[in-house]
């Protein structure tokens, strides 16, 4: 930039004549950089695409005279055939399966993480971590098969065929728990391992046992990381599709009214079938779907809801990490 003013400084005299030492304009470099920027921008386009598509179709859905935004959030029945579009039954099923899943994955995942980071010898770790990685790499449809053909029969034998339906949310929820277990375990372990050794040594030096060190020093120090892991896991459980599509049932658990829903707490029964948001989208789009039908636009409204929920959870998790991360 200064070149124009102080020209003598950036040329040099040699036997062959004057050589310009200023940086050359290199169009090739610019093109490459432009292309690489474009590659990065594709991810932005994807996000914009997702948001645009979901909003556009959801807007068509809510403009439909048969649908009202208020009823969408307050009605307790989802039955497109009779024009009942209340998201509650689908949301309820999603919540139930996710909560059951978290009840499995949270305690187990944290316990595994503590074992791996505080107790296991390097040899044990090198065996256990690949096992978790294998669990994490198994396709979700396989977990769906596992839920339907292994967990459901066990539940039905143990609790009774009258109580437990062939398709039920308990089985789907349990298997979702197993499915997100590796995620919880490995994210928690990362958080625990990030706590510096000096804190542990100090605790040992004061005479604390291994357990006391783990629970009173390491876990509190890693709390933000653990929290982030839980929230990411919830988000994953909410978005999980194949397990619930296969094992939880096909048909929303509808209620005529709120009173009906809370009678005998029928809405919380995990042993009956139900349909989650994701399960519903898969079932509807699996059939022949006409672009102009309300079925088509309705699944976009559900997907928008799902997207908002998972995005919120993910952002909260990132915020936790950013705001509460301890620096050592």
């Amino acid at each position: 930039m200064q070149g124009e003013i102080t020209k003598p400084l950036i040329t040099t005299q040699t036997a062959e004549g004057e050589i310009d030492l200023r940086a050359k304009k290199r169009p090739g470099e610019m093109i490459v950089q432009g292309f690489l920027f474009f590659c990065g921008a594709v991810s932005i386009l994807t996000t914009v695409g997702i948001v645009f598509v979901l909003f556009e179709e959801a807007l068509v859905f809510f403009r439909d005279p048969a649908v009202s935004l208020v009823e969408f959030f307050t009605k307790t029945m989802w039955q497109p055939k009779i024009g009942a579009f209340g998201i509650f039954p689908l949301l309820l099923a999603t919540l139930l399966t996710s909560i059951i899943g978290m009840m499995v994955a949270l305690p187990l995942g944290v316990a595994i993480a503590i074992y791996l980071s505080e107790y296991a010898t390097p040899r044990n770790r090198s065996i256990l971590k690949p096992v978790l990685e294998i669990l994490a790499g198994v396709p979700t449809v396989v977990y769906g098969f596992f839920a339907l053909s292994f967990v459901t029969p066990i539940l039905r034998d143990a609790i009774g065929k009258d109580t437990v339906d062939l398709f039920n949310m308990a089985s789907a929820g349990l298997v979702i728990g197993i499915l997100i277990l590796p995620l919880v375990a490995s994210m928690s372990e990362d958080a625990l391992s990030a706590v510096p050794r000096s804190l542990r040594e100090a605790a040992y030096g004061l005479g604390a046992t291994r357990l006391e060190t783990a629970l009173k020093i390491v876990v509190p120090a890693a709390l933000s990381g653990l929290g982030a892991a839980f929230i990411v896991a919830i988000s994953r459980a909410v978005g999980e599709t194949m397990v619930v599509a296969i094992a939880a049932g096909s048909g929303p658990r509808n209620f005529a009214s709120w009173g009906d829903a809370f009678k005998n707490l029928a809405l919380f029964n995990p042993f009956k079938s139900g349909e989650t948001m994701t399960g519903h989208i898969v079932r509807i789009s699996g059939g022949d779907l006409s672009y102009n039908s309300i079925d088509y636009t309705s699944i976009f409204a559900i997907a928008l809801m799902l997207f908002v929920i998972t995005l919120t959870l993910n952002i909260i998790s990132q915020q936790i990490v950013r705001r509460y991360r301890m620096r050592y």
Binding site: T46, T47, V232, S235, R236, L306, L311
Partner: peptide, 20 residues
């Protein structure tokens, strides 16, 4: 943006693919 995209459920990508 990439961190957020990594957390989007796969079924949402299906909706994107279907519409686009």
């Amino acid at each position: 943006n990439i961190n957020n995209l990594a957390g989007v459920p796969s079924i949402i990508y299906g909706m994107l693919g279907l519409a686009v």
